[in-house]
Design a protein around this nucleic acid. Structure first.
Length: 255
DNA sequence: GTTGAGCGTT
């Protein structure tokens, strides 16, 4: 029982597989991974639930572990708990990632780490059951649908939580992505904005901005402002209203 | 120079 991988694949149909990634994306880590064996992982994961099997895929050619392991739990809630508790946790000074397996041994997609028995090597059973397939299909579909319903609810809930937790932990890594998305959006905005301004005033950039705005810039506000204010009568003489401005002026030359 | 997600045996 100690050697999990050696026992081969037990009854994995009713188990929930967790994918454990514990490395820092490095070949050097292979050495470290080497140290981390199924026996080492077992107690760690067994603490959170009943571990049925632990499998560490290794390259048969080199015999080196690929840097991840599969932990099979008997119950989903325990597996979920392990994911929640061990995901992002530092083990042996290394942060490990624990998540539900997405693909089964047959490269089939599995839900919530649960391995769905589609049609493994039992092909000899009855590979061709066309008319009956429909019947089975309906049954399966109904059963799956129901199961999926409840599973989905739980999953959604967990997923949100997990996602949040993961996001917080990985905010750094998500940063670049964020910047990318934002940059794109901004660029788009800029482009749109620019396109408008470009079409509106295409000569705003190339020519000297000092030449044309210069004479007009200082002139218009002055001439227009007074005339208008004067007419309004609201701010009759801004100049005379500032008593302090005059002393300062007179003082300026004085000193 | 770096990152990141990565999915399977007797």
């Amino acid at each position: 029982m100690s050697h999990f991988g050696r026992s081969g694949p037990p009854d994995i149909t009713d188990t929930y597989s967790l994918l454990v990634l514990n490395i820092t994306f490095r070949k050097l880590l292979s050495l470290l991974v080497s140290r981390t064996t199924a026996d080492d992982l077992f107690p760690l994961f067994d603490k959170y639930g009943k571990v049925v099997d632990i499998f560490i895929p290794k390259d048969r050619r080199t015999g080196d572990s690929r840097g991840f392991a599969f932990v099979r739990y008997k119950y989903a809630d325990e597996a979920q708990k392990a994911v929640d508790r061990l995901d992002g946790r530092v083990v042996d000074g290394r942060e490990i990632t624990v998540q539900f397996a997405k693909y089964g041994p047959n490269a089939e997609r599995i839900q919530k780490g649960r391995i769905i028995e589609s049609f493994p090597r039992s092909r000899s059973r009855s590979p061709r059951r066309r008319h009956r397939d429909d019947h089975y299909k309906d049954k399966d579909y109904r059963r799956r649908s129901r199961s999926r319903s409840s599973d989905r609810y739980e999953r959604d809930r967990y997923r949100g939580k997990d996602r949040d937790s993961r996001r917080r932990s990985r905010s750094r890594s998500a940063s670049p992505v964020h910047s990318k998305g934002r940059g794109r959006g901004r660029y788009d905005d800029d482009r749109r904005s620019r396109s408008r301004s470009m079409s509106a005033s295409p000569a705003r950039r190339s020519p000297s901005p000092q030449k044309s705005p210069s004479p007009r810039k200082t002139s218009p506000p002055r001439g227009e402002s007074p005339s208008r204010r004067s007419r309004d009568g609201r701010s009759p003489s801004p100049r005379s209203v500032s008593p302090q401005g005059r002393p300062a002026d007179s003082r300026s030359p004085s000193s």
